[in-house]
Simulated assay, not measured.
Amino acid sequence: MTVIKSLLVFILAGLCEIGGGYLVWLWLKEGKPLWFGILGGVILALYGVVATFQPTGFGRVYATYGGIFIVMALIWAWQVDGFRPDKYDLIGAAIALIGVCIIYYAPRP
């Protein structure tokens, strides 16, 4: 159950970072109203809070989040922006995800 809970926290943190960043992007790059940027900033701040719900120390959490973020960013781009990941995107994301799962979930003494 601990693994499932931590994965859910990583996913929520990822949604906050990607979603918040996307709103800021829309505001600055695509001329959306200021409130997009403000809301994006608030959501980005929530990302910092959500990440603290992980039981492990800062370094390992953020290292692991980096790999999960890669996968989530590709999914976001595919579903929201119409970007179609190619086989190299998928291979790279799989390698990153396997690596961070080893970092975070490997049994330690």
Score class of each variant (00 low, 15 high):
residue 45 A to I: 13
residue 83 F to R: 12
residue 61 V to Q: 04
residue 51 A to D: 03
residue 84 R to N: 13
residue 24 V to A: 06
residue 54 Q to R: 11
residue 19 G to I: 02
residue 1 M to P: 12
residue 56 T to W: 09
residue 102 I to G: 01
residue 11 I to Y: 15
residue 2 T to N: 10
residue 64 T to L: 06
residue 108 R to F: 12
residue 91 I to E: 06
residue 59 G to R: 09
residue 10 F to G: 04
residue 101 C to K: 04
residue 72 M to K: 10
residue 95 I to L: 15
residue 38 I to W: 14
residue 11 I to F: 15
residue 43 I to E: 00
residue 102 I to H: 06
residue 22 Y to V: 08
residue 8 L to E: 00
residue 68 I to G: 04
residue 27 W to H: 15
residue 35 W to N: 01
residue 34 L to T: 10
residue 44 L to T: 05
residue 105 Y to M: 03
residue 54 Q to C: 02
residue 8 L to A: 12
residue 95 I to S: 09
residue 15 L to S: 01
residue 79 Q to A: 15
residue 33 P to T: 07
residue 99 G to K: 04
residue 101 C to I: 06
residue 78 W to C: 01
residue 11 I to V: 14
residue 10 F to Q: 13
residue 32 K to C: 04
residue 40 G to S: 03
residue 44 L to G: 03
residue 33 P to N: 10
residue 75 I to Q: 05
residue 18 I to D: 08
residue 37 G to P: 00
residue 13 A to Q: 05
residue 12 L to E: 04
residue 102 I to A: 10
residue 79 Q to T: 14
residue 35 W to M: 03
residue 109 P to F: 13
residue 24 V to Q: 06
residue 4 I to C: 00
residue 5 K to P: 09
residue 74 L to M: 08
residue 26 L to A: 08
residue 28 L to I: 11
residue 19 G to C: 05
residue 65 Y to W: 13
residue 25 W to K: 14
residue 60 R to E: 04
residue 80 V to R: 08
residue 32 K to V: 09
residue 18 I to N: 05
residue 42 V to W: 03
residue 31 G to S: 02
residue 15 L to A: 11
residue 28 L to M: 12
residue 35 W to L: 05
residue 51 A to S: 15
residue 9 V to Y: 10
residue 77 A to W: 05
residue 38 I to N: 13
residue 26 L to S: 06
residue 28 L to R: 13
residue 64 T to Q: 11
residue 87 K to C: 02
residue 91 I to M: 14
residue 75 I to T: 02
residue 12 L to K: 09
residue 103 I to L: 15
residue 8 L to K: 03
residue 37 G to W: 08
residue 97 L to D: 00
residue 103 I to K: 12
residue 98 I to R: 14
residue 73 A to T: 14
residue 4 I to M: 05
residue 93 A to S: 14
residue 64 T to V: 07
residue 94 A to E: 00
residue 40 G to K: 01
residue 46 L to K: 09
residue 50 V to Q: 00
residue 11 I to L: 13
residue 83 F to K: 06
residue 2 T to I: 13
residue 50 V to I: 15
